[in-house]
Amino acid sequence: MTTVVGAAQLQAIVSDEDVVRVRQLVRTAAVTAKLSLVDQTKVVTAASELARNTLVYGGGGQAEVSTVDNGARRGVRVVFSDDGPGIADVELALTDGYTSGGGLGLGLSGARRLVEEFELNTEVGTGTTIAITKWAR
């Protein structure tokens, strides 16, 4: 069973600066969970993509960053949530190169590749929640 170690950190995402703050929180949690440098880099990059999505497509929201433990390993878990328009076609949104904005279309699909666990819940008109977990090896 996965348990949260210590207190989860909440960060509102309403500006560019907040995306930077999310990266820093995730970095700190990744160091605490003793992830390798490459794994730290991967999870911080994934968090950066998703935080920007929360800001740009979700119209702002929040990130909850925590260090987790499943009994065997430690890891970092980040939950992004927004009350934005939601994603109508999840399959399409997760396709490499697809973008509804002006981006490269690598945010969602790329972030998913960089972590071990990726759960996406979305409802049109209600919002989107994405939880990612990266485990120490």
């Binding site: 490459v38 880099t41 991967k42 990059t45 993509e49 690598l106 790329g110 972030a111 590749r113 960089l114």
Partner: peptide
């Protein structure tokens, strides 16, 4: 390493 995996 991360860039390549991201697909960039």
């Amino acid at each position: 390493i991360t860039l390549v995996e991201l697909g960039l």
